[in-house]
Nucleic acid binder design. Structure first.
Length: 584
RNA sequence: GCUCCCGUAGCUCAGCUGGAUAGAGCAACGGAUUUCUAAUCCGUAGGUCGCAGGUUCGAGUCCUGCCGGGAGUGCCA
């Protein structure tokens, strides 16, 4: 149990002794104090429950304090209008450190409810290279899947690549007319992108060409052998390119079940929806309409036009009898339930697709699926002028270029200050630090806020960045490496005296309180915030408290702090998908 | 028009079921290194939390209205 949980348990016992019972007890909470001047943890339960108990808050707090048994953990004080403040005793922190040393999970409890979760993230279109717009889904999805696994959920990651959509009509059209074999062999991704751009720009200017592209797509989807052959080659080449990026990012998928995998199920999905009465023909297309239940303002199949609520159906078969992503997504849910036995599906996708997912989830429920469905939306990438980066031909920086820039910045910033001699090792470090900086930058933002693309800041290696955490880890490891004799690091006889030691212990103890809340609202930035605070505490400790030259219980205690800081930092970074170097 | 999101220090952003004197980083300024990695530490300065009401013992956080920005809104994904 974490300190917060222990204190809450004791405090509830205190409230029970004061006659509080039933549901009211659920409202007795203990949280980390907003300000350390007030202590380590605080509870506002006395103020919350005072009215029901017909007492004034301070009086209630006082009687609870008098019967709460927590002397082994903390000193309790009453402050302000009725806060109960807990100041954890150094000995209690020391005890906690001892427990963490014995615990491979470093004080993080496994989740009580274990789910079978399918996580759908990254999902780039093939035949187009990944650009900065793919960063958020890829990095956030990967971090969330790592955290979910660590907390004991059964996780299946699936890269639902866009390998069956409109862009293939264009690529095939241009392939047949414009393909340069030599270019394809030397730089396949660039050639595929060129083909796409040629067709895209020409079909914008010329309706005939657009129609031809559309027909190429229909032919492909109906199984035309020539088009299928081109398609297969495109997918193979693109996938090789994508794998290179994922290797650099250290992102792995259990499956790559792209849109094309569901082609065979689409007709059946539409037929079953029509048969069950959920879908019907309208204006030549097949659509799902509102079931008319509930408030139209909350109905994803309704939209307000002027004074009336009009239908806003979900189109599952277009008037040209082609299928779209709505159909594919429905089929994909079926598949995930049937094949993976999923009871929860996470979609880490841009918030602009919010309406689509509301409709999709509603359809899934009306078809009888009872799995939980979550759209983990994130904000838009903005330019420095505050407006969204637009997809005008080639405007978005390529992901590979961004990574290269960050690695280059890491290389330059290691110049003259790195302790690593070998150039080869320094190159590997620059990769680790540069890629880590990009990931950390991404993960430290609140998921839903918009994201200003600022290359300089992205590749910055100072301040609240991955290298700051990596450097703290390196400093821990450096001390532990220099330790010449065998030292048994356990919880016996630890002494925490200096403020910096106590604060570091406090931060270490909070690891178990932090990791689980990341999944409460899919918020990796809560973990980045925590790790920064931990690293700050360590850097301060490092300056004030010499370790190796100290003696006795002090030395042992400081070594334990170094060891645990190293373990927590490494584990925390691993949950974010960031590597921790031994030296830098 | 309707639905959803956002507005916090010069800049980029945190702020966890409402809690005490709103916090970091960058940029600026001033200090710290014969001592375990200075990609570090310590300090100074910087705010009408878009505006106005409301609920509450208490509001950056919840509600209403307004201003400003963005996104989505039947055959793209």
């Amino acid at each position: 149990m974490t300190l917060a949980e222990l204190l809450r348990e004791r405090l509830r016992a205190g409230f029970i002794a004061c006659g509080i019972e039933g549901e009211a007890l659920e409202r007795v909470g203990v949280t980390q104090a907003a300000d350390l001047r007030f202590g380590d943890y605080q509870s506002n339960a006395a103020m919350v429950l005072a009215k029901a108990a017909k007492k004034n808050p301070r009086a209630l707090a006082e009687s609870v304090m008098n019967v709460t048994e927590a002397a082994d953990l903390a000193e309790i004080e009453i402050a302000g209008p009725g806060f109960l403040n807990f100041r954890v005793k150094p000995a209690a922190f020391a005890g906690r450190l001892g427990e963490m040393l014995e615990d491979g999970r470093l004080g993080v409890a496994s989740s009580e409810d274990r789910f079978r979760i399918v996580i759908d993230f990254s999902a780039p279109n093939v035949a187009k290279p990944m650009h900065v717009g793919h960063l958020r889904s890829t990095i956030i999805g990967d971090a969330l899947s790592r955290v979910a696994r660590f907390l004991g959920h059964h996780v299946v990651t699936d890269n639902h690549i866009g390998d069956w959509g409109t862009q293939f009509g264009m690529v095939i059209w241009a392939w047949k007319r414009e393909l340069k074999r030599e270019a394809l062999e030397s730089d396949p991704l660039a050639e595929l992108l060129r083909l796409y751009r040629v067709a895209n720009s020409q079909s914008k200017e010329d309706d005939t060409i657009r129609e031809e592209c559309r027909r190429e797509l229909v032919a492909l989807q109906q199984g035309d052998p020539g088009n299928l052959e081109i398609w297969e080659e495109c997918v193979r080449l693109s996938r090789n390119g994508l794998e290179r990026i994922y290797d650099r990012l250290k992102v792995r998928f259990d499956h790559w079940l792209g849109e094309s995998c569901y082609n065979g199920r689409l007709a059946g999905v539409v037929a079953s929806l029509m048969k069950s009465g959920l879908a019907r023909e309208s204006q030549g297309a097949v659509c799902v309409f509102s079931d008319g239940a509930g408030d139209p303002a909350q109905d994803p199949f309704k939209i307000r036009k002027g004074d009336e609520w009009e239908d806003k159906p979900m189109i599952i078969r277009k008037s040209d009898r082609g299928y779209n992503y709505a159909t594919t997504d429905i089929a994909t849910i079926d598949y995930r339930v049937e094949e993976f036995d999923a009871d929860w599906a996470w979609y880490v996708v841009d918030h602009r697709q919010g309406d689509h997912f509301k409709q999709l989830f509603a359809v899934a429920r009306r078809r009888g699926h009872d799995l939980a469905l979550s759209h983990i939306a994130f904000g838009t990438i903005l330019g420095k002028d505050g407006t969204p980066l637009k997809t005008r031909a080639g405007d978005l920086p390529l992901l590979s270029d961004l990574l290269n820039d960050a690695v280059e910045a890491a290389w330059e910033s290691s110049e003259g200050r790195s302790r690593v001699e070998s150039e080869e090792e320094r190159r590997a470090l620059a990769e680790m630090i540069g890629v880590g900086a990009i990931k950390f930058m991404e993960l430290s933002h609140h998921r839903t806020s918009d994201y200003v693309f600022d290359l300089e800041k992205m590749v910055s290696m100072d301040g609240d960045t991955a290298p700051y955490l990596q450097n703290a880890y390196v400093r821990c490891r450096s001390i532990l490496r220099k330790l010449e004799e065998e030292v048994t690091l356990d919880g016996d006889g630890l002494e925490l005296g200096a403020d910096e030691e106590i604060h570091l212990a406090r931060m270490l103890a909070r690891f178990g309180e932090t990791v689980p809340v990341v999944l409460d609202d899919f918020r990796p930035n809560l973990l980045t915030n925590y790790l920064l605070e931990l690293a700050r505490a360590y850097h301060s400790f490092f300056h004030v408290c010499p370790v190796l030259i100290s003696e006795g219980a002090v030395r042992k205690s400081r070594l334990v702090l170094c060891e645990l800081t190293a373990r927590v930092l490494r584990q925390g970074l691993e949950l974010l998908g960031i590597e921790a170097p031994e030296r830098m």
